[in-house]
Amino acid sequence: MGSITLNNVSKVFGAHTVIPSIDLNIEEGEFVVFVGPSGCGKSTLLRLIAGLEDVSGGKIVIDGKDATELAPAKRRLSMVFQSYALYPHMSVRSNIAFPLKMAGEDASVIDKKVADAARVLNLTDYLDRKPRQLSGGQRQRVAIGRAIVRQPVAFLFDEPLSNLDAALRVNMRLEISQLHQQLKTTMVYVTHDQVEAMTMADKIVVLNRGNVEQVGSPLDLYHHPDNLFVAGFIGSPKMNIITGDIAKGYGAHTIGVRPEHLDLSTSAGAWRGTVGVAEHLGSDTFLHVAVDKVGTMTARVGGDFPVRHGDQVYLSPQEGRVHRFDETGLAIR
């Protein structure tokens, strides 16, 4: 139950190849996040799995059965859309009940399941409202409610939180994670927010121009990026990339050091630079340092670090925290 396998799946829009070929395995009960820059094909891939787009080639296996040609409704997947896509003229109750009604369930069964879903999602007081009378977060919950009543084999989310403000996003992120722990159903989640990806995922799939760059657990991607793209994409602020003689000194074409893996000192260190901007957040200090012969690097120090614009600092990479890459951008291990 709930595993999804993509074999050699490709998608072409007219003359435009969006997904050249993807192989992917999603295990049952996993929380898988697709991340990647805008336009890399995340939504397209999700819609292919949902059956809202036809594949141009390859095979999709859901729950052990070939679903490549199946209609969306027959795949037993639920999707939560970015715009929520609630039915505007139906009450919250009817919205949540809609998939059950379409499946021809008894009225008593529907009532019970809707009540259960509403309780789980804290929507009981809003059941008789119309979607437009709800806040963004409540709408989001209704959309999730509509998705869970069907008891699908997997949930698909397409940037479900991107319309919410920052505080609410943190809340909903937690709620979705909790829901996953409760239901233990496979979830496929698209986002371009890497905090969401890192915090929620069991497994992250990094996409770039329709190709899978790396698949792995969040910490795996953070500590062992396969290539420069993943190294630059995962982690915030971005990893510092250094080429040239310094990289040669490490026996690589390019090296990368994360801002949090740089030791700072005002007296001595490997690389000398001048502080450009210092961002004091209280908990952390981010320094943008113009390093001689390298360019601007970002460094992160815990707590306060009392330097100002124009001050001299020394940066040294921590032992064993330097990522090395060859000419093609692949990691050297």
Binding site: L52, A73, H89, F98
Partner: peptide
Amino acid sequence: DEEQKEAAQMDGAGAWSRFIYLTLPH
């Protein structure tokens, strides 16, 4: 809204149900 139609499609509504429950009210 195209996404509403797709949502209904995923919810298992056939063409006729989509017409009755989505198109006509719209």
